[in-house]
Design a protein around this nucleic acid. Structure first.
Lengths: 343, 343
DNA sequence: GACACAATAGTGACCGGTCACTATGTTGAA
DNA sequence: TTCAACATAGTGACCGGTCACTATTGTGTC
């Protein structure tokens, strides 16, 4: 319908060459690396470039080099946690490395996602893929000659992985401290166990509970949602209440807290609850949620740093600073001495 | 470091042509539209294509057509609300239209963002841009010959806009109903007024308050964060408490609720609070938050539909169904008859 | 001054598609 | 039968860069 304006064609390398009175190849050399040119020639090209406001056509360049200058990032379709900060860190790093980042969001289950991801890798459209969603292990043998693939938020012994979301050390710290506060019976509402981070937290939970010789009311296989936190509590056998719940993230913790309030349990007097992600709503909840602050931009950046390394061999500066920090707030406290039961 | 595997070059149009025993041009025709070919020729090419697993090289195609097949989506750097669902709807629609979607996240203020956005539009890299972040009105005259730009989450009389996030009708419904429940003094904690949605809700608030002849404790200019909800309450002159707070979104409402609980006010007995976005945490809060459910995938999709229309003139099917729905929950109730004051 | 050699610069083909134009085959009316 | 007119297919250039190779200039040494 709307006619595009007529041919706003950008100047080409040959026009620059003509203006600078050199050959197109000299301009090409100038573009790739300014070495091997006489200062005088260089200056002439400099002038021509800025006069014409020349910018190289990356698409044309690709035809020879096979380098598209594009990476892709795959988002899980449904996410309880907010991937914005991860995306933000990832785009920044990608741009820093001179890449543009294509956003892909694959519906369907893990298998459909894996299939489409491999197709994308094989399409030649992108040089590498960072996926925030888990993919099927079956993919591992099929990476052959396509783009490099880095999986964040999940890992697999055979595949490259970021591994940072996976650091579950704070879970151990939580349980140690809570045990020191008199808690003897714990419960873990895990996130979606297709995610390595969820598996790592679960393992850390089991390890700590075992090591400290405290009781566990079990591990509930949730999916990062508040609903799953609520359901996890409901699934608990009557009379077998824990005094501390380690929730997979803040959202899950909200569900746990809701269940508690519906059953007349007061937090933290009757039940201590911990979250993960240090979300803003968690900080402003009543009681404010004990949680783990994550450097999510750093996670995104580091995933991208790995991908860039895999694709180009080039080392980008990773995110400085620690990835996680445990923040004690009002939702955790010394265990109440008088045992309660459901109202 | 890692050597890329040697030349996994995909088959070209000429190889397909050779195998099908036609000219490359015939294959090219076949690719663009399968019309004007003898059924027999078509079948031969079909066979060759599938035998070679041929897929066209979109980059090469661009060189002639100037169509990159790429659109960009600009994310605000910091967002209180979760844009995931919008992104998801937008990518789906973009892919449906045969476009890939590039993710861009510009730091800096609105002016820096606008500058970089215009640069991107001018780069020829993308055919269109959908921005979820507001851009400066000054940009409007400068769209000249670059990519089409559609602004979601904001609008400007001169610029195309999605307009759907902007529908603030539920604000009117909220105030009407609350007024029917006996509320006479309202307060509005607006979102970032650089966003059209925030402005629209504010206008709807002022209009409804005025029309119904109820009192307003004012409008606080927040920024979509829980912190701003908390601060808004703190900024209220002592003794001038409203009985109902219309918060810009659920996150803001959480901040309001936190302040209330710190000051011994019980919700909804002493204060009714409404949110916006129907977040999962809002549903599981105690009390559960009255909020507005949004079809965010639909918002993303419709933004993209507009962009595709602007770029190609083609009409993609917009999202069906209504965009928002008001959900009454526990955080709103009949106004308590015995007036309270801060504890 | 002559020569080898390095430092610079230029020429033309090519990447994988599309475009403009031409060539051939087919059909139907005169 | 002939020829116009249409349907179908082919030829070669071109998009804007890079690559491989060749040509020219400059420098140092004998």
């Amino acid at each position: 319908m709307t006619e595009r304006p007529e041919d706003p064609r950008r100047p080409t390398i040959r026009e620059v060459a003509r203006l600078a009175d050199v050959s197109h190849q000299t301009v090409s050399r100038y573009l790739r690396s300014r070495e091997g040119l006489k200062p005088q020639t260089l200056a002439r090209i400099d002038a021509a470039v800025s006069e014409l406001d020349y910018r190289p056509n990356l698409v044309a360049r690709y035809l020879n080099t096979r380098r598209t200058g594009r990476l892709a990032i795959v988002m899980p379709e449904l996410v309880a946690s907010n991937p914005t900060r991860i995306l933000s860190g990832a785009t920044e790093a990608a741009h820093e490395a001179g890449y543009s980042l294509e956003l892909v969001s694959f519906g369907g289950g893990i298998d459909a996602r894996t299939e489409r991801l491999l197709e994308l890798a094989d399409s030649g459209q992108v040089e590498g893929i960072l996926t925030l969603a888990p993919i099927a292990p079956s993919a591992q043998g099929r990476l052959g000659n396509g783009a490099a693939i880095v999986v964040s938020a999940d890992f697999d012994d055979e595949m490259r992985s970021v591994g940072e979301l996976i650091d579950a050390a704070p879970v151990r710290d939580m349980i140690e401290r809570l045990s020191g506060l008199g808690h003897r019976r714990f419960y873990h509402v895990a996130g979606d166990l297709k995610y390595a981070s969820a598996r790592a937290r679960k393992d850390a939970y089991l390890e700590a509970v075992d090591r400290l010789g405290v009781e566990s009311a079990g591990v509930f296989e949730g999916d990062w949602t508040a609903r799953s936190g609520f359901d996890a509590m409901r699934a608990l056998p009557h009379g077998a209440l824990p005094t501390a719940v380690i929730a997979g993230n803040d959202m899950v913790a909200v569900g746990v807290m809701r269940w508690a309030s519906e059953h007349g349990l007061e937090i933290p007097r009757d039940l201590s609850v911990t979250g993960w992600d240090d979300t803003e709503f968690g900080r402003f909840l009543t009681p404010a949620l004990t949680s783990v602050e994550l450097d999510l931009e750093g996670v995104g950046r580091n995933g991208m740093v790995r991908l860039v390394k895999a694709v180009t061999g080039r080392d980008l500066a990773p995110s400085p600073g620690p990835v996680s920090r445990l923040l004690w707030r009002e939702s955790t406290a010394r265990r109440d001495q008088t045992p309660r039961r459901l109202g």
